[in-house]
Amino acid sequence: MNERHVDLEILRYDPETDEEPAFQTYRVPCQEDWVVLDAVNYVKDVLDRTLSYRWSCHMAVCGSCGMMINGEPMLSCKAFVRDMPDRIRIEPLANFPIERDLVVVTDDFMDKLASVKPYLIPREEKAIEDGAHVQTPAQLKKFKQYTLCINCTLCYAACPQYAHDQNFTGPAALALAHRYNLDSQDVGRGAREDVVASNAGIWECSFVGACSDVCPHEVDPAGAIQQTKIASTVDYFMGLLTPERDR
């Protein structure tokens, strides 16, 4: 197995001893098929037990190992060392406060996520005896892409709008709101409107499109937000034409 030495420059920060974060470099012997997470795990297991970071599944499903890798938000379990230069700069996800080393505080994202009511709001509860909920493949297709979000927050780290205004609801939360709005079983669009169609919601987005570029599951939050803008604009004008219309 080919071995190649790579220098990892990792941003370190221990709130108990450090005034501010600083880079520390580790030389790591990497194997051909390693991802950056393998290299970081090598640092943790062999070179420095004090390094803190999050990870779990190692297969791009859990969404916990997001890091800035050479300035780009990526899942470190899906970032292959073979595609990288010999010096790899690793930082915690941008736009979030650093808790420690590569661990960021995601409370703000969690609040935003909850604020868009990311769950089915059915017209009425259906008793188990009344049988299954029916949805056609065409109805599923409308929103399926947006169900693939793993809440990894890479899109927040890529979004300059969120960087400059933390009130912005942000890409993943708005994409999830769109997912439920498009679901044939859901009638919660009105209930989500206050958050989604507000100045801090879709109208804060200026369509940079970075969120969709970095999404590891091709959810395309930027597209979702533009679609919501159009739907919301149509709603507005329809509201002017038919003020009594129940939304």
Partner: peptide, 30 residues
């Protein structure tokens, strides 16, 4: 426990120079 989350400063003037996609975005806006 002594948490002290560190917030990195974001440049308000030069942020868009950081990545090519931000430059492309700014070109579109400009």
């Amino acid at each position: 426990m002594s948490r002290r989350p560190y917030r990195r400063a974001v440049s308000t003037t030069s942020w868009w120079l950081a990545r090519p996609r931000y430059i492309r975005y700014m070109a579109r806006e400009v």
